[in-house]
Computed example of a mutant assay.
Amino acid sequence: MDFASGLSQRRYDELVTSAERAVVGLDFDGTLAPIVEDPKDAHIHPDAGAALVELAPLVEAVAVVTGRPVRQAVSLGELDEIGAQVAEGGGEFLVLGHYGNERWSARDRRVISPRPPKGLATLMSELPDLLRRHGLGEAHIESKGGLAVAVHTRRMDDPDGAQETLTPILEKAARSHGLVTEPGRMVVEVRASGMDKGSAVRSLQKQLHADAMVFVGDDLGDLEAFDAVADLRRRGMVGFLVCSGSDEQQALVDKADLVVDGPDGVVAFLHQLAADVARPAG
């Protein structure tokens, strides 16, 4: 692995040493699953399940932390099957959806979900006309289980230009309904405030009494998680940050201890971490 610096190498070595008390958090889209034109077609890397099952018994817990609804992520990633294998091996496997507002555990297989945010249903009813009035009628609207809505520009003729036009329009509309926006790779999401992956990371650390935190992500929605791990590290915890690299997004590169080549690189990292943790000392 090509670490960002000698400090990053030392952080990785500390992680290996303290892995038994570590929580490994991973984003879904762009990290475990390749980015695709239609979000409904996203499926995790074919070797990701084996890597997660291999690593989970060696750490405190593995958690998928995603902006997707839990049920959608579990279905697309076949995470129920992966979770069953992890639980059988004595590991802990969690899925935190909607930036941590939803929770699913492989042990009890129950989805704990909040109420829909006020204003979202009204905004969604207004969206088609709003987009048409600004020449964005071809943008794809994705409902996220009644807790958020995402507008994708990836299928449009000029996806980057369309997103540049879309972002301030959605920001204004979201504010008028007491909501916030989260930009991503050719997508802008609208959701309730207070829903972010940084809060999810801090919650996982407290609930599981973790001594080390890892986070692997690829996009702007993962910035809060990266910042949360960096903050915990400043407080004396072991922390390690991995960027699933792409040509579309560079926001996490400078914050990462390790940059890997998309989901292929993420899976290779998970296998390597498991091998290093399992290797006898000396």
Rank of each mutant, 00 (worst) to 15 (best):
Y12P: 07
D254G: 13
G178C: 06
E248K: 10
F226M: 02
L123P: 05
V59D: 04
G239K: 04
G83N: 08
V259F: 02
R103Y: 12
R133P: 04
A148P: 06
P263I: 01
V151E: 10
L52C: 08
A73M: 10
F269H: 01
V216Y: 05
P280L: 06
I82L: 12
A51F: 14
T122P: 05
P57D: 09
L220W: 05
I169M: 15
T165E: 14
G89L: 14
G194M: 08
E88C: 05
E37N: 13
A148S: 15
H140E: 13
D227Y: 09
A173M: 10
D264M: 02
R234W: 10
V187W: 05
A84K: 12
V242Q: 06
L258Q: 03
A4Y: 07
L131T: 01
V188W: 09
R71V: 12
R132S: 13
E92M: 13
V16A: 09
R202A: 14
P128F: 12
R11G: 06
R68V: 08
H177D: 04
D196M: 04
A162R: 04
V111P: 05
I82C: 06
K40W: 13
G135H: 08
R109E: 13
H152Y: 10
Q250M: 09
I44S: 07
I169K: 11
P159S: 05
M237C: 11
D211Y: 03
V253L: 14
S203K: 08
G90C: 06
F28T: 00
D218F: 04
R107C: 06
A73E: 10
R115Y: 10
V36D: 07
S244K: 04
A56P: 11
R71E: 15
M195G: 09
V65P: 07
G77W: 11
D129K: 14
V260K: 01
V53D: 11
Q205Y: 03
M237Y: 11
L258W: 07
L273C: 00
L7R: 15
V266N: 01
A230L: 15
V188L: 09
G184W: 07
P128R: 03
E60N: 13
E20P: 03
A42E: 06
R107I: 05
A174L: 09
S5Y: 10
D157K: 13
H98D: 13
A200T: 00
T167K: 15
G262A: 08
D108K: 01
D196W: 07
V267K: 01
E88Y: 12
V187T: 00
R175V: 14
V24W: 12
E14M: 15
L58S: 04
R103F: 14
S8P: 07
G239N: 02
G97H: 08
G198R: 02
H152E: 07
E189D: 09
A251L: 08
C243H: 15
H271A: 02
G262K: 01
A56G: 10
Y12S: 04
D276F: 06
A33S: 15
G146M: 11
R234I: 03
V65N: 01
R155C: 09
G77N: 03
T181Q: 06
E138L: 12
Q163V: 03
L147R: 04
A278P: 01
V242H: 05
A106L: 05
T17P: 05
E138T: 13
Q163L: 14
A63T: 04
L273T: 00
H134V: 03
A281D: 11
V188C: 06
R233G: 06
M124G: 01
M156R: 14
M1H: 08
